[in-house]
Write a protein that binds this DNA or RNA. Sequence first.
DNA 1: TACCAGGAGAAAA
DNA 2: TTTTCTCATGGT
Length: 227
Amino acid sequence: MTHPHMDQALARDVFDTLLATYGPQHWWPAETRFEVMVGAVLTQNTAWTNVERGLRRLADRLGGVTNLDAEPILALPEAELAECLRPVGYFNVKARRLRAFCADYLEAGGREGLARLDTLALRRRLLATNGVGPETADDMLLYAFDRPVFVVDAYTRRLGGRLGLLDAEAGYEAIRHGFEQALGLDVPLFNEYHALIVHHAKATCRTEPRCDGCCLRGLCPFPKSHR
DNA sequence: TACCAGGAGAAAA
DNA sequence: TTTTCTCATGGT
């Protein structure tokens, strides 16, 4: 079966509407490139407010956010790292994943070594690390390495599905390629688009958390009383 | 009380 | 190969 191409005009239109509604989001919320990558691991299936607590505890433990780097993290015993990450949730799993990522990061020659790789090779390298899946890798590629990769998350699926932009049952890669083909490879655009989708999901419908179509193109499937 | 949150990997079917 | 289970804190 051949999947239909994503509607280019609609993909653009949804972005324009989101941007006009919420304005620029200035993502990713972090002080350093490495903090972006750590945050990408910690935010897996987790509310960002919890990630912030964990990041703060970890940075404090290391003597400041400027010390939030691969070597200092690896120097911490895993149990101690996990304790810092307690507020994040899944803290044992994430302590192990963060250490695995830090080890691979160093082995690859740190940021400089990784930045020498082309986007496809870098993506493969990141995905090869235990605990780094498609979304986490693409967060890193887009927000820490400025590569033109569209990040797909649960919000993207739901909103895109509701607006008829994509098939919500499609695989991760199919949806990613859909956006990339429809929009063209554009780092600033991809950066803002994903940030706006996440912001929109949090900003609308406090009484109906599953509603992602509110106030957007008049396609909200819920009654106005929920908006 | 129940449900959800910016997933990923292992185990089971 | 596809589906199900596990990981866990904090807010609503």
